[in-house]
Simulated assay, not measured.
Amino acid sequence: MAETKDAHVVEIPVDEEHQQKQITVVDTVAALQHHPLAEISQSPGHFLLLKLWQREEDLYGRRMSRKESRKDAIGREIFQLCCSFFVFHGLFLTILFTSSSGHHHCKKWWIPSALSACTSLVIAFLVQVKLCRYWKVDRQLQRDRTDSRALTRCIQELRMKGASFDLSKEPQNGKKLKSSSVEIKWRPITWCSHYRVTVFLVCFTGLVLPSCRFILCA
Protein backbone atom coordinates (compact mmCIF):
# COMPACT_ATOMS: atom_id res chain seq x y z
CA MET A 1 0.00 0.00 0.00
CA ALA A 2 1.53 3.23 -1.12
CA GLU A 3 2.01 5.87 1.43
CA THR A 4 0.84 9.30 0.52
CA LYS A 5 3.11 12.13 1.44
CA ASP A 6 1.69 15.49 2.14
CA ALA A 7 3.26 18.23 0.05
CA HIS A 8 4.03 21.32 2.07
CA VAL A 9 4.21 24.61 0.19
CA VAL A 10 6.29 27.27 1.92
CA GLU A 11 5.34 30.81 1.02
CA ILE A 12 8.04 33.44 1.37
CA PRO A 13 6.45 36.74 2.17
CA VAL A 14 7.64 39.67 0.07
CA ASP A 15 7.04 43.02 1.62
CA GLU A 16 6.07 46.04 -0.42
CA GLU A 17 9.28 47.90 0.36
CA HIS A 18 11.46 45.17 -1.12
CA GLN A 19 9.25 44.97 -4.17
CA GLN A 20 9.45 48.73 -4.61
CA LYS A 21 13.25 48.59 -4.48
CA GLN A 22 13.29 45.95 -7.21
CA ILE A 23 11.07 48.09 -9.40
CA THR A 24 13.33 51.09 -8.78
CA VAL A 25 16.43 49.11 -9.74
CA VAL A 26 14.78 47.90 -12.93
CA ASP A 27 13.72 51.43 -13.84
CA THR A 28 17.22 52.74 -13.14
CA VAL A 29 18.84 50.11 -15.35
CA ALA A 30 16.38 50.87 -18.13
CA ALA A 31 17.04 54.59 -17.80
CA LEU A 32 20.80 54.06 -17.93
CA GLN A 33 20.46 51.99 -21.07
CA HIS A 34 18.63 54.85 -22.78
CA HIS A 35 20.92 57.56 -21.37
CA PRO A 36 22.67 59.70 -24.03
CA LEU A 37 26.12 58.78 -22.70
CA ALA A 38 25.23 55.09 -22.95
CA GLU A 39 24.08 55.65 -26.51
CA ILE A 40 27.35 57.43 -27.28
CA SER A 41 29.40 54.56 -25.83
CA GLN A 42 27.52 52.12 -28.07
CA SER A 43 28.03 54.25 -31.19
CA PRO A 44 31.67 54.22 -32.41
CA GLY A 45 31.25 57.37 -34.48
CA HIS A 46 29.76 59.46 -31.69
CA PHE A 47 32.22 58.09 -29.14
CA LEU A 48 35.20 58.94 -31.35
CA LEU A 49 33.83 62.42 -32.04
CA LEU A 50 33.37 63.05 -28.31
CA LYS A 51 36.95 61.98 -27.57
CA LEU A 52 38.34 64.15 -30.37
CA TRP A 53 36.41 67.20 -29.22
CA GLN A 54 37.43 66.66 -25.60
CA ARG A 55 41.07 66.45 -26.66
CA GLU A 56 40.70 69.59 -28.75
CA GLU A 57 39.06 71.36 -25.80
CA ASP A 58 42.02 70.43 -23.62
CA LEU A 59 44.43 71.78 -26.26
CA TYR A 60 42.49 75.05 -26.35
CA GLY A 61 42.80 75.34 -22.58
CA ARG A 62 46.56 74.82 -22.64
CA ARG A 63 47.01 77.23 -25.53
CA MET A 64 44.98 79.94 -23.80
CA SER A 65 46.97 79.45 -20.61
CA ARG A 66 50.25 79.96 -22.49
CA LYS A 67 48.95 83.05 -24.25
CA GLU A 68 47.66 84.55 -21.01
CA SER A 69 51.11 84.05 -19.46
CA ARG A 70 52.74 85.64 -22.51
CA LYS A 71 50.31 88.55 -22.38
CA ASP A 72 51.08 89.17 -18.72
CA ALA A 73 54.82 89.02 -19.42
CA ILE A 74 54.53 91.61 -22.21
CA GLY A 75 52.46 93.83 -19.91
CA ARG A 76 55.21 93.70 -17.28
CA GLU A 77 57.81 94.61 -19.91
CA ILE A 78 55.74 97.62 -20.98
CA PHE A 79 55.45 98.74 -17.37
CA GLN A 80 59.22 98.45 -16.89
CA LEU A 81 59.87 100.52 -20.03
CA CYS A 82 57.48 103.22 -18.82
CA CYS A 83 59.20 103.28 -15.44
CA SER A 84 62.57 103.61 -17.18
CA PHE A 85 61.17 106.48 -19.26
CA PHE A 86 60.11 108.51 -16.23
CA VAL A 87 63.23 107.65 -14.22
CA PHE A 88 65.37 108.89 -17.11
CA HIS A 89 63.48 112.16 -17.38
CA GLY A 90 63.56 112.64 -13.64
CA LEU A 91 67.34 112.27 -13.53
CA PHE A 92 67.76 114.25 -16.74
CA LEU A 93 65.77 117.25 -15.53
CA THR A 94 67.48 117.14 -12.14
CA ILE A 95 70.95 117.22 -13.72
CA LEU A 96 69.83 119.91 -16.16
CA PHE A 97 68.46 122.07 -13.36
CA THR A 98 71.61 121.77 -11.23
CA SER A 99 73.88 122.65 -14.19
CA SER A 100 71.94 125.75 -15.25
CA SER A 101 73.97 128.17 -13.14
CA GLY A 102 75.64 130.04 -16.00
CA HIS A 103 74.11 131.76 -19.03
CA HIS A 104 76.74 130.27 -21.34
CA HIS A 105 74.76 127.01 -21.28
CA CYS A 106 71.84 128.73 -22.98
CA LYS A 107 73.57 128.68 -26.37
CA LYS A 108 73.83 124.89 -26.27
CA TRP A 109 70.32 124.16 -25.06
CA TRP A 110 69.64 122.04 -28.15
CA ILE A 111 72.21 119.40 -27.08
CA PRO A 112 70.32 118.17 -23.99
CA SER A 113 67.06 118.61 -25.88
CA ALA A 114 68.28 116.35 -28.69
CA LEU A 115 69.58 113.81 -26.18
CA SER A 116 66.26 113.79 -24.36
CA ALA A 117 64.28 113.55 -27.59
CA CYS A 118 66.34 110.66 -28.99
CA THR A 119 66.21 108.66 -25.76
CA SER A 120 62.50 109.29 -25.31
CA LEU A 121 61.65 108.32 -28.87
CA VAL A 122 63.66 105.11 -28.59
CA ILE A 123 61.81 104.13 -25.42
CA ALA A 124 58.47 105.13 -26.98
CA PHE A 125 59.29 103.01 -30.04
CA LEU A 126 60.07 100.00 -27.84
CA VAL A 127 56.81 100.52 -25.96
CA GLN A 128 54.93 100.68 -29.26
CA VAL A 129 56.49 97.40 -30.41
CA LYS A 130 55.55 95.74 -27.13
CA LEU A 131 52.02 97.10 -27.38
CA CYS A 132 51.63 95.69 -30.89
CA ARG A 133 52.68 92.28 -29.63
CA TYR A 134 50.40 92.64 -26.61
CA TRP A 135 47.29 93.34 -28.67
CA LYS A 136 48.21 90.68 -31.21
CA VAL A 137 48.33 88.07 -28.44
CA ASP A 138 45.10 89.52 -27.03
CA ARG A 139 43.31 89.07 -30.37
CA GLN A 140 44.57 85.51 -30.65
CA LEU A 141 43.43 84.84 -27.10
CA GLN A 142 39.96 86.22 -27.75
CA ARG A 143 39.66 84.11 -30.90
CA ASP A 144 40.72 80.98 -29.01
CA ARG A 145 38.19 81.73 -26.28
CA THR A 146 35.43 82.10 -28.85
CA ASP A 147 36.38 78.84 -30.55
CA SER A 148 36.64 77.09 -27.18
CA ARG A 149 33.16 78.25 -26.16
CA ALA A 150 31.72 77.06 -29.47
CA LEU A 151 33.42 73.69 -29.04
CA THR A 152 32.14 73.39 -25.46
CA ARG A 153 28.58 74.04 -26.64
CA CYS A 154 28.91 71.29 -29.25
CA ILE A 155 30.24 68.85 -26.63
CA GLN A 156 27.33 69.63 -24.33
CA GLU A 157 24.87 69.19 -27.18
CA LEU A 158 26.45 65.84 -28.08
CA ARG A 159 26.18 64.65 -24.49
CA MET A 160 22.54 65.69 -24.31
CA LYS A 161 21.39 64.25 -27.64
CA GLY A 162 23.44 61.07 -27.66
CA ALA A 163 23.16 58.94 -30.79
CA SER A 164 20.70 61.39 -32.35
CA PHE A 165 23.44 64.02 -32.67
CA ASP A 166 24.35 64.95 -36.24
CA LEU A 167 27.93 63.84 -36.89
CA SER A 168 28.31 66.32 -39.74
CA LYS A 169 27.93 69.27 -37.40
CA GLU A 170 31.09 71.27 -36.73
CA PRO A 171 31.83 73.99 -34.16
CA GLN A 172 31.65 77.50 -35.55
CA ASN A 173 35.01 79.21 -35.55
CA GLY A 174 35.69 82.76 -34.45
CA LYS A 175 35.45 84.24 -37.95
CA LYS A 176 31.96 82.87 -38.55
CA LEU A 177 30.75 84.08 -35.18
CA LYS A 178 32.27 87.50 -35.78
CA SER A 179 30.65 87.80 -39.19
CA SER A 180 27.27 86.85 -37.76
CA SER A 181 27.41 89.61 -35.15
CA VAL A 182 27.18 93.26 -36.11
CA GLU A 183 29.99 95.22 -34.50
CA ILE A 184 30.80 98.80 -35.47
CA LYS A 185 34.05 100.36 -34.29
CA TRP A 186 35.71 103.55 -35.38
CA ARG A 187 39.33 102.68 -36.09
CA PRO A 188 40.93 105.93 -34.82
CA ILE A 189 39.22 105.56 -31.45
CA THR A 190 40.22 101.90 -31.25
CA TRP A 191 43.83 102.74 -32.15
CA CYS A 192 44.02 105.52 -29.57
CA SER A 193 42.55 103.29 -26.87
CA HIS A 194 45.07 100.55 -27.63
CA TYR A 195 48.14 102.75 -27.97
CA ARG A 196 47.33 105.59 -25.59
CA VAL A 197 50.51 104.83 -23.63
CA THR A 198 52.66 105.59 -26.67
CA VAL A 199 50.66 108.75 -27.38
CA PHE A 200 51.21 109.90 -23.79
CA LEU A 201 54.96 109.24 -23.95
CA VAL A 202 55.31 111.17 -27.21
CA CYS A 203 53.30 114.10 -25.83
CA PHE A 204 55.40 114.12 -22.67
CA THR A 205 58.55 114.17 -24.81
CA GLY A 206 57.19 117.17 -26.69
CA LEU A 207 56.68 119.01 -23.40
CA VAL A 208 60.20 118.25 -22.18
CA LEU A 209 61.88 119.75 -25.27
CA PRO A 210 60.95 123.40 -24.58
CA SER A 211 61.53 122.81 -20.88
CA CYS A 212 65.24 122.26 -21.56
CA ARG A 213 65.62 125.73 -23.05
CA PHE A 214 63.52 127.28 -20.32
CA ILE A 215 65.65 125.71 -17.57
CA LEU A 216 69.00 126.61 -19.16
CA CYS A 217 68.08 130.11 -20.30
CA ALA A 218 65.96 131.22 -17.34
Rank of each mutant, 00 (worst) to 15 (best):
E77G: 02
I78W: 05
I78Y: 05
I78F: 03
I78K: 08
F79A: 13
L81K: 12
C82L: 11
C83Q: 10
C83N: 12
C83E: 13
S84W: 06
F85G: 06
F85E: 03
F86W: 13
F86A: 05
V87T: 13
V87D: 10
F88D: 07
F88W: 14
F88T: 12
F88Y: 15
H89N: 14
G90D: 09
F92Q: 05
L93Q: 04
T94E: 02
F97G: 09
F97N: 15
F97D: 12
T98P: 02
T98W: 12
S99T: 14
S100M: 13
S101T: 15
S101Q: 15
S101E: 15
S101G: 15
S101W: 04
H103G: 08
H103E: 10
H104M: 14
H104Y: 14
H104K: 12
H105E: 10
C106W: 04
K107I: 14
K107Q: 13
K108D: 10
I111H: 01
I111S: 03
P112F: 02
P112Q: 03
P112T: 00
S113L: 12
S113M: 15
S113C: 15
L115V: 08
L115N: 04
A117C: 08
A117I: 09
C118K: 03
T119S: 09
T119C: 07
S120I: 01
S120E: 03
L121T: 13
L121V: 12
V122P: 03
V122E: 08
V122Y: 05
A124E: 02
F125N: 12
F125P: 03
V127D: 04
V127W: 00
Q128A: 08
V129S: 02
K130C: 06
L131I: 03
C132I: 01
C132G: 03
C132K: 06
C132S: 05
R133H: 02
R133Y: 06
